[in-house]
Design a protein around this nucleic acid. Sequence first.
DNA 1: TAGATTGTTAATCGATTAACAATC
DNA 2: TAGATTGTTAATCGATTAACAATC
Lengths: 218, 218
Amino acid sequence: MPACDPIGPAPTIRRLPRYLELLQIEQAAGRDVISTTTIAEMLSQTAIQVRKDLAITGVTGRPRVGYDIQELIAAIKGFLGWENVSDAFLVGAGHLGLALLGYEGFAEHGLQIVAAFDVDRRKIGAQHHKHGIRDLATLPALARRMHVHIAVLTVPRPVAQQTADMLVAAGIRAIWNFADPRLQVPEHVVVETVQLSASLAMLSSRLQASLNGKGLHP
Amino acid sequence: MPACDPIGPAPTIRRLPRYLELLQIEQAAGRDVISTTTIAEMLSQTAIQVRKDLAITGVTGRPRVGYDIQELIAAIKGFLGWENVSDAFLVGAGHLGLALLGYEGFAEHGLQIVAAFDVDRRKIGAQHHKHGIRDLATLPALARRMHVHIAVLTVPRPVAQQTADMLVAAGIRAIWNFADPRLQVPEHVVVETVQLSASLAMLSSRLQASLNGKGLHP
DNA sequence: TAGATTGTTAATCGATTAACAATC
DNA sequence: TAGATTGTTAATCGATTAACAATC
């Protein structure tokens, strides 16, 4: 039995937050329905792709009219599990960790960081963005007490695997991994890895192609 | 004439940094050659994919032996334009911007942030991670003087487009965009967008599938 | 030599795009 | 009604995987 049967194509799932955001803006502007043509135009995509993407939510539109915005918003939130904000732990209070701690926008995306942890005695106890940094050793007990099963992992790479092992042992079921792309976890745990270096590789290679192709000097 | 003729498949380019890192570790360990079988095993991929990926660098291996590590490292760096570190400007000294400013590892990935900018008078002049925050108005002159053509955009979303327009006018040719996925730029400018919400959508949806499928309680 | 490994060519797989009947 | 829009089914495109001859 595989850990996570994908409920839909990854590219589609990755586009859902953009649809959600647009729909919320349109709803706030007082609109009730919207067509895939309109959505596509606003997001610089094709209408066909929008329709295919929205289909995985199960919502059906009405020909000549479009989709009910409220219904779509509810369906996308439901699909992503963003109807209720989930509590999460931040593990690793370095530069990146504290930046994520300070970002208030995650609540819009179903995530609320409720506590931050580190092993560094100099950091433990300090306040950052309304959160006290706690001793990592206290995480397991707190995870069980607060029923938290999501962790944001922003520790240094050399300790990433051992920290992840500890999180899994503490009952964590999902790790948003900024620490190490090689992370290994048991089947029942979900890992989503963010690799900034991959994104940077895309930027660099295309910039180089652009500069070489057209020349830097006018 | 399209702006950036892709030099290779995006998935391949995104995997190159992982190969590069592994190769550098192996080189430091004193190895001279490596086979795709070995690489694949260490990165939990298939050997065939590794071979296909490495092929875009133009390096050829020797049957029964493998690839020359030093040659591969040079070829990947060359392909990505990471042989020499490129100077970059950080635009937007918020939480995320300062975190990126504090991260020392980008030099490994061909990027060096040499100055940081903001429009907020309370931030301008302050020191963060050895960098003074400068007035954004001074960017165009400095970009020309220092020949910088990469910007890391970490401003608030509402001002992202107008800031990008300004960067383009200042001669910036590549934008690493953390600010707004809808950014529009002229053809000769490369944009690479990092969308944390897309990654979060992957995590959430798979966690939900995992919890629903197998049950949270044992 | 024998056998592991490369590199190329073909097959498969999955996502995007196109075509078009159904429908309000 | 006419025509815009949906939703499904087919075609295309691109990446991954497989097969296999070449080679050191």
